[in-house]
Design a protein around this nucleic acid. Structure first.
Lengths: 127, 127
DNA sequence: TTTGTAAATGCAATACTTTGCATATTATAC
DNA sequence: GTATAATATGCAAAGTATTGCATTTACAAA
């Protein structure tokens, strides 16, 4: 992967942002600095970053998938299917699990942002 | 959720199909039987089925997310990020892991089709 | 049955994402 | 520094997915 102004800009944006962003949100933010940039360029840059293992992409059940840098500390989410509430959980037990899968399959696991879906305690009560 | 010809048709399609299908593929198949159906109806029906826990949706790294019935036996995949090869693995260890998360968080986990990404042994060698 | 209500549908318009191709830029070898 | 090849970009067009709103349909209650 080659250095380019757009890729650099995306790095900066994803780094400053603590949240995960959709492609479109990233495009909007890139445009603030580089007003002439085309949307396809941003979409392709993101694709490239994912392919090169610089960024990862997750479907958190929202309207679109979200991106984050892999350099960020591995962390995982539990998303409530009913109310959308998101719980972030620490890496410990997930890491153990992934480690086990890795040993068993000989794949090198790259997933570093696992999303699980469920129903939160509150929504279970509401039934 | 109410019975409707389109939902029934989708059930049938997903049931017959052993694979996972994208929304568009499902739309194409529905059209064979119900030629007048609008795409938005199919997309909304799928959305509804997911929301009601009848179907689940997964991002397998392909061009679009794929759908499957939750009635199908829980199974999970490991997808190679380089060559796209897919490994299906049995439920055992994943079930244990999900059970543990469930206990710890009090969420009722609904994820029954987990997708992990990694790099397969062959692609690791190729480097 | 008939009727009332909520859910599902179709249509048209919009929003979002991807693609093909020509051009421009960057890195590497010379 | 210059040439070469590979990568990245912009533009326009196409493909895919979503939304608003009026209408129809299915279900349940009377």
């Amino acid at each position: 992967m080659r250095a380019s102004s757009i890729t650099n800009e995306i790095f900066k944006i994803l780094n400053e942002q603590d949240d995960h962003l959709t492609a479109k949100e990233i495009y909007e933010k890139v445009k603030v600095t580089l007003s002439a940039v085309d949307q396809s360029t941003v979409y392709r840059a993101l694709e490239r970053m994912v392919h090169h293992g610089k960024a990862s992409v997750s479907d958190m059940g929202g309207p679109a998938v979200v991106y984050q840098l892999v350099s960020q500390k591995p962390h995982h989410h539990l998303v409530c299917e009913k109310c959308g509430k998101q719980l972030t959980f620490k890496d410990g037990q997930v890491a153990d699990f992934l480690e086990a899968v890795q040993k068993k399959t000989n794949f090198k696991i790259t997933t570093n942002h696992l999303i699980l879906f469920g129903i939160c305690p509150e929504c279970q009560k509401k039934k």
